[in-house]
Design a protein around this nucleic acid. Structure first.
Lengths: 255, 255
DNA sequence: GAGTGGTCTAGACCACACG
DNA sequence: GTGTGGTCTAGACCACTCA
């Protein structure tokens, strides 16, 4: 007979909480509005604070909330579309792109990058640090690795490091041809230094965009850019105004 | 004078744990190997289980670990590169792509999708569900939304739903021209249905790839594909063998 | 200093996989 | 049944922001 399984799949509390909160955000809150603090919300829903936090964490991961220590939890604006289409910039630093060079150093690259560059582990590699700004907010931090062999003309009289050097390296790259580029996107967590630039805590989720710049069949440079996953939507096509907000395609419930 | 700030920034325990574990994974474990269980690991490191779990969660997020309830925690293989380059498939379902149609339904689209499709909220939309397999593993689940007005020739005598219908819809799409497509990538968390297909728990982190198919300046279809963020690296260029494994650019320590 | 989110603890029970 | 990871609790203290 029809075993009417009531609550056969007991939803975790934090999951249910998340959907309830999500609906509340849609109906009762405006962007930028501050939510009650965690202790109060937990009490109001009759759960432990840790459980409530699990729900908030998910909502933050989905870009619906923004939490700042010492301040509070606010309703996040929709994610900004950030254009990362590959045809746009030839070499990084071309024209006035959205990136702002911060500084640069010269040292052997970390193992993973050296493997991509197909260089010896010990070869000197210039590392240019850049920040990408959008609407006054830094949305991405990048490390651009350029083997010294790729920019042999780089004048040694320039400063050996710092922003001036960074611009010098980018300038040298413009003079090279560029045959193509490879790109990959994956999930990562912010290293301490990136987190600082992005105004997030270390470990915050980021979208890591790895680009390989190819000259004459050889990898002439590698860029590793970390975008804030909570606030960014990476766009590839021509129009950057894609927006999906409704992740729950299910019948609406009468309250 | 040089203020030697010792431990000015006390690292959180879980963060330190993560780096320690990460190093151990590199040196002492092979891919697929099972770690000691959480209670034992926590005891071994002298922390509460919750703290240990915070470290494990981050490592899983970075694709270094794989945890399965009732089974254990294993060392994950490197992420698989999954080609999502836009020029590859004209219309989805062309030739034999990596996607496998599962079923289909016809109903009004959820609000977010309807907005993208620029249709009335009530218009009937065919929804095709597909799974992307790689190496015997399902790496992505997709919902392809096709307004009925985009495929007017779709024969009504076909089954109104199910895999046969799904294939019929894809077949109709092949007959249309395709002017271009837009694409966006963002972080999301798996809905219950997607989680099931991907063999993950609900809420698992996923990379959401939203594609808009454009015909005559109009959005003729929209696809929302969710890729397992823990196991996938989305590649866009020609060569899919990019690999970055070293997220910690620092000197290696002798054991 | 007051109030916020972030970290941490030491337990408990539950859902699931597997033999 | 046994062992695993997943959920949940009720506390505590810490780090940070802001008035």
């Amino acid at each position: 007979m029809g075993t009417t399984q009531l609550e056969a799949v007991p939803e975790p509390k934090y999951w249910h909480l998340k959907t309830v909160l999500g609906r509340a955000l849609d109906s009762d809150f405006a962007v930028g509005e501050v939510l009650p603090n965690e202790r109060e919300l937990a009490a109001r829903f009759g759960v432990a604070r840790a459980t409530l936090r699990q729900a908030l964490e998910q909502l933050e991961l989905e870009g619906r909330l923004q939490r700042r220590r010492g301040v509070g939890t606010t309703v996040a604006p929709p994610r900004v579309g950030v254009d990362v289409s590959t045809t746009q910039h030839e070499w990084p630093g071309a024209a006035q792109d959205a990136w702002q060079p911060i500084d640069s150093t010269t040292a052997p690259a970390p193992a993973g990058v050296a493997r991509l560059l197909e260089t010896e582990a010990e070869e000197a590699v210039h590392t240019v640090r850049r920040i990408r700004m959008t609407h006054g907010q830094s949305v991405a931090a990048e490390l651009l690795y350029v083997p010294s062999s790729s920019v042999p003309e780089l004048s040694a009289i320039d400063a050996p490091s710092g922003p001036a050097r960074a611009r010098g390296i980018l300038r040298e790259l413009q003079r090279l041809g560029l045959d193509g580029q490879d790109r990959a996107v994956e999930l990562g967590s912010a290293r301490a230094d990136d987190a600082k630039e992005l105004d997030r805590l270390p470990g915050a989720p980021v979208l890591v965009v790895t680009t390989r710049y190819i000259v004459a069949g050889r990898t002439a440079a590698v860029s590793v850019a970390t975008y804030r996953a909570d606030t960014c939507r990476l766009t590839f096509g021509d129009s950057g105004d894609l927006e999906i907000s409704d992740q729950q395609p299910q019948a609406r419930r009468a309250s």
